[in-house]
């Protein structure tokens, strides 16, 4: 039992690091555009597909393949911002949500089509093999790398948002009009934010993809589904706090793994049930988020 819980914790944190990356992207976009970005995980699947094509079909070096995948994700993010978000910026937030869902569906459709000949693919790992077996559960190098990259990204983002550019971005997100007045281009900030978010999505894709076989919609509803979990982490972060998003992703990963304990074997889909009840509980009890500093009352 102890081993089982320990294993759930380890796997939870490792899968959770993917959710954290997704959640970071969701929070960034929400702060900039007030959009629930349902395309966030499809940035990841698209990046993964692109990396796969470069590495496996074109025979590129792995590192260049990954860079190509990330570039594809960023390109998709920028295109989304330019073609969908900007024209719709005065629409209702539900319209915007439907718009991002449309982007996700379009990407999934193209993936299905292009992948028709062989729907299930396998991306090779960065470093093959198992790094260790804590609590008797094998942990791959790939998973360890994912967690390390998340930590590096978190530190990088923290440093970025303390730099002059980062502060300008934050200012533009909070007070668009005032920022325009002092010479910060809200448009460019929006582009930048979506670019960073798509980059994070792409990272989630190229890092988590190799752990499993993947299909169209891999990160959205496929084997590596992280969309709902990413949103839950973002909710825990109050849609606002970036450290909260990182922590939230790890917590959601662990909660989900607890659903896999043999204790709940009799319950069908216990992981989905756990997630549903957890989200419900969080939204009913602490809708303002959990891992977020109380905002000073105005």
């Amino acid at each position: 039992m102890i081993d089982e819980i320990g294993a759930a914790l380890v796997i939870g944190v490792l899968t959770g690091s993917v959710y954290s990356m997704v959640a970071l992207g969701i929070v960034l976009v929400y702060r900039a555009s007030r959009v629930f970005n349902f395309a966030q995980t499809e940035f990841g699947t698209t990046g993964l597909f692109a990396a796969f094509v470069a590495v496996e079909l074109w025979g590129w070096h792995y590192a260049f393949g990954v860079l190509f995948g990330l570039a594809a994700a960023v390109a998709m993010g920028l295109a989304t911002e330019r073609l969908i978000i900007r024209p719709l910026r005065d629409s209702s937030r539900v319209t915007l949500l439907v718009g991002t869902a449309g982007v996700a569906l379009a990407a999934i459709g193209i993936q299905f089509w292009q992948n028709n000949a062989q729907p299930i693919r396998q991306m090779p790992r960065m470093i093959e093999g198992v790094a260790g077996e804590p609590f008797g559960t094998p942990v791959t190098h790939q998973q360890v790398i994912t967690l390390l990259v998340l930590l590096a990204v978190a530190v990088g983002l923290a440093l970025f948002f303390r730099s002059p550019t980062g502060l300008a971005v934050q200012a533009a997100q909070q007070e668009a009009t005032a920022s325009e007045l002092v010479g910060i281009s809200v448009r460019r900030v929006s582009m930048l934010t979506w670019g960073i978010a798509a980059f994070l999505g792409g990272l989630a894709g190229v890092l988590s993809g190799p752990n499993l076989t993947f299909t169209a919609g891999f990160l959205t509803f496929g084997a590596g589904a992280a969309l709902l979990q990413g949103f839950m982490a973002a909710v825990l972060a109050g849609m606002r706090s970036m450290p909260g998003a990182v922590l939230g992703g790890l917590v959601v990963g662990v909660v989900e793994q607890l659903g896999s304990l043999t204790l709940f074997d009799g319950v069908d889909g216990s992981r989905a049930l756990f997630l549903f009840l957890f989200l419900l509980g969080v939204l009913l009890l602490r809708p303002q988020g959990v891992f977020v500093r109380e905002k000073a009352t105005v």
């Binding site: 073609l83 982007v103 996700a104 569906l105 379009a106 459709g109 193209i110 299905f112």
Partner: peptide, 8 residues
């Protein structure tokens, strides 16, 4: 493939 583009 076409459906989502129609939506957009």
């Amino acid at each position: 493939v076409i459906g989502p583009f129609l939506l957009l």
